[in-house]
Nucleic acid binder design. Structure first.
Length: 785
DNA sequence: CGCACCACAATTTTT
DNA sequence: TTGTGGTGCG
């Protein structure tokens, strides 16, 4: 055995907890590498171990010939795997700060960071584990001056951009039906993704001489001007500007290329064109770029992701190696078969078949409910039964296509007292009240933030109307002054006389807060802000149910401030605001809370649960109506289905409703085609007898019409799980009864909660404390005394 | 200027 | 069905 072989086998011995393919991915450190990682194939583990290998052994595992000659004694040490071998086998090990690991969400970045930290300790903190956007922000905070921005530039989120766009549409006197601000933003986003400057866009629009596009060109120019003037970048700008920065400045490009010896990109199938450009500009001459992705899990085409990036990685980066991770460690055989079989109907894919060493498990179950209410009841009853058997609430997830579907499910869970939590929907930082307070903080921090100033100048109402604000804005524009200056000198402008006093009062308050901010921490500023503006007080006076939750949210913002100061050790207001701009709700999601999770299939990507329900398995719902008849859209829906199915570890239940009320309309839909794409052997169809959808060969069309909404169909799932009706008093047990349990001894019933035809008992046992039991399952162990 | 009421539309979403 | 945005009145 020569030195090189010895080194390789020594390093290999350090990664024996990985499977051969995973190890291959860990060891291929040099040059471009594409890792096609199927769902649940342990790709994060691979990423972590790959980084560990780089830091520890550098490129040793991937060298054809180890450059150093070993003495016999050294060779012995390596062969015997003695601790000293670690140093001997290292070949140009990577410094933590030379690594860039890019993910899509803050949550994924955070997870990566914390896993690295527990493996490597302090050193891990120097690794750049961040999202595309935060990586760009870090680069731009150093070099934005080269583009004519200040390094303290502001980040506009989607609603800020929308506010700007609405203003522009108004100023240009465009019809907002034909030129909907949202579509305009989408069009601009597309232009930016194609890396078209406003001028280039105009040139292209000129060729087609079509009115719409030339108007859009004008809008694009204006929008760019407004943001530039405000020293602000929107989310696309963060990437576009970084791409431009690197492309046009050789020095800066060289600096960053030299700095990052190795780059890793996770979820590569979700990258757009700009992100691809960014990655190629950051990649150094050695082409040490490793991307991980799964073309079958690309579900974000609608926001610009192009599956093309992963499909053509091999041509983008020549001499690239490709490794497939196909062993799935998550799901049971039947579930995996179902997933494989569904996705095999797609044509546009690299091709990959997952396998598992696990047993078959139980087949996927299809339940056909009468309507969305019964669908929800069925879900609740299955969960309750599971809980009664000792499962945790957190082991269950309910996935759906649209947020609008969550309502009926929430209702059923609520009525059975099942704890649940919804992921997604309106994000915390998107809530109006939260944005208001943040806008105050922005205005305090940045005096020329006109956009945020306009938002809060009359919130809570202080008698400064829209008209006055518009007049002030005009004055500001004419004199090229920040709006705030005009407000604070409102007395000197005749046109503002009506609200001058109130404006002045407002400006004084902001000035006061600004002074205070200099000497105090953000949380103290928050307290004074709430007091001075009377924000919470105003809400309290209204005292409606929604205002109650608004107050909660505003208060919650203080926890967010304190949390940031705690985690980062940064006590600057600017730091907090910059952080918030790139923060989302998903980051808040903690899987520790014992509650059922409700979310869209999109949000579920990257997560796993022992028990999964997919609700709304009907044509027009899933696949959605827009995808039907559109081949490529249908493929995206199918990938979404694949993602959803592969979330499940042990049991997967699909639910279709014969009738569904959505947006106030009742529809009857066929069971989803995706159900038919699951092999008969892997699915158990649980369809109450006497209904249209039944045994294999027969039609899958639901007979429409009213006869099926008759009471006959009353809760068919109860046939399977005959249950006591909720109203029926239980003969044996009452609140306060003393009981003896075979395992827990004597106790008193302290609470009885009806749940899906059963009861959740809470019994205070004298020896074992309070236990929660389901009456039906516990009855045989309990005796009344 | 503020508030109440009515019309309208509504996949999916991270940053 | 639900939420939002625009209009009109006090």
């Amino acid at each position: 055995m020569d030195g090189t072989e010895a080194v390789h086998s020594y390093i290999e011995s350090k990664f024996m907890h990985l499977n051969p393919m995973q190890r291959k991915a860990v060891f291929a450190t040099e040059g471009p590498l594409l890792i096609l990682a199927g769902a649940g194939s342990g790709k994060t583990t691979v990423l972590i171990n790959r980084i560990y290998n780089l830091l520890k052994y550098g490129c040793a595992s991937d060298c054809e010939e180890f450059p150093r000659q070993f003495s016999d004694a050294e060779l012995e040490i390596i062969k015997n795997g003695q601790v000293e071998a670690d140093c001997l086998c290292a070949l140009n090990p990577v410094e933590p700060w030379q690594l860039l690991a890019i993910t899509f969400t803050n949550k994924a970045a955070g997870e990566l960071e914390s896993r690295l930290e527990s493996m490597l300790g302090e050193a891990a903190l120097d690794i750049w584990a961040c999202t595309f956007h935060s990586a760009c922000v870090r680069i731009l905070r150093r070099n934005a001056d080269a583009l004519g921005y200040s390094t303290g530039f502001t980040i506009y989120d989607t609603s800020d951009s929308l506010a700007v766009m609405k203003q522009i549409v108004k100023e240009m006197d465009l019809d907002d039906k034909f030129y909907a601000p949202k579509s305009l933003l989408a069009e601009i986003s597309r232009a930016k993704d194609a890396r078209l400057s406003p001028a280039e866009y105009r040139r292209q629009a000129g060729f087609s001489s079509d009115l719409y596009h030339s108007k859009v060109a004008e809008v694009y120019e204006k929008y760019t001007d407004v943001l530039k003037k405000a020293d602000a970048m929107d989310f696309d700008d963060l990437i576009l500007n970084t791409v431009n920065l690197l492309d046009y400045n050789e020095d800066i490009r060289n600096y960053w290329q030299n700095r990052f010896r190795y780059i890793l990109v996770d979820e590569y199938q979700d990258t757009n064109n700009l992100q691809y450009l960014l990655v190629s500009l950051l990649t150094n001459r050695e082409n040490n770029i490793c991307v991980v992705g799964d073309d079958d899990q690309s579900i974000y085409k609608f926001r610009g992701a192009t599956i093309e990036n992963i499909l053509s990685f091999e041509s983008h980066f020549t001499e690239c190696r490709t490794i497939r991770l196909e062993q799935n460690y998550r799901s049971v055989g039947h579930i995996l078969n179902a997933a494989n079989s569904v996705i095999s109907n797609n044509l546009e894919r690299k091709g990959k078949t997952l396998w598992t060493a696990k047993s078959d498990g139980s087949p996927v179950e299809l339940y056909v409910a009468d309507n969305e209410r019964e669908e929800a009841q069925y879900i609740a009853s299955v969960i309750i039964n599971g809980y009664g058997r000792g499962e945790n609430w957190r082991d269950y997830a309910v996935l759906y296509r649209m947020n609008a579907q969550s309502n009926s499910i929430e209702y059923a869970l609520k009525s059975h007292n099942i704890p649940y939590r919804i992921v997604g929907g309106t994000r915390f930082f998107d809530r109006a009240e939260v944005k208001d307070i943040l806008a105050y903080l922005c205005v305090i921090s940045t005096p020329n933030d006109d956009l945020r100033l306009r938002r809060i100048i009359n919130v809570p109402a202080r008698g400064i109307g829209l008209k006055s604000v518009e007049t002030a804005t005009e004055i500001a524009n004419e004199n090229d002054l920040p709006l705030f200056d005009v407000i604070s000198h409102a007395m000197s402008y005749e046109e503002l006389s009506r609200s001058a006093v109130r404006m002045k009062e407002f400006a004084n308050m902001i000035d006061e807060l600004r002074d205070y901010a200099v000497t105090s921490s953000p949380d103290e500023l928050y307290d004074l802000l709430i007091e001075k503006t009377g924000y919470i007080k105003t809400l309290e006076e209204k005292n409606s149910l929604e205002d109650q939750s608004r107050i909660e949210n505003v208060k919650e913002l203080k926890s967010s401030i304190l949390g940031y100061m705690n985690d980062s050790g940064d006590t600057s207001l600017e730091g907090y605001l910059a952080n918030v701009a790139l923060y989302s709700d998903l980051d808040n999601y903690d899987s520790d809370a014992d509650a059922v999770t409700l979310m869209t299939m999109h949000s579920s990507k990257g997560l796993e649960f022992p028990y999964v329900f997919i609700a709304g398995m009907e044509e027009t719902v899933f696949p959605g109506i827009r995808a039907i008849g559109e081949a490529s859209e249908m493929e995206e829906e199918r990938r979404l289905c694949y993602v959803a199915i592969t979330r499940a570890m042990k049991e997967l239940r699909l639910i279709a409703a014969r009738q569904r009320m959505l947006f106030g309309r009742t529809n009857c839909n066929r069971v989803s085609r995706f159900v038919d794409e699951i092999p008969e052997n892997d699915i158990k169809k649980n369809v109450p007898k006497g209904y249209g959808y039944s045994e294999p060969s027969s039609s899958t069309v639901f007979p429409g019409g009213s006869k099926y909404s008759s009471p006959v169909s009353e809760s068919a799932y109860k046939v399977k799980a005959p249950a006591l009706k909720k109203e029926e008093p239980l003969p044996e047990l009452e609140l306060g009864d003393s009981v003896r349990h075979t395992a827990f001894g004597e106790g008193v019933v302290i609470k009885m909660t009806p749940m899906g035809g059963d009861y959740l008992l809470e019994i205070n046992f004298s020896d074992k404390g309070v236990k929660k039991l389901m009456l039906k399952s516990a009855a045989r162990y309990i005796q009344k005394i």
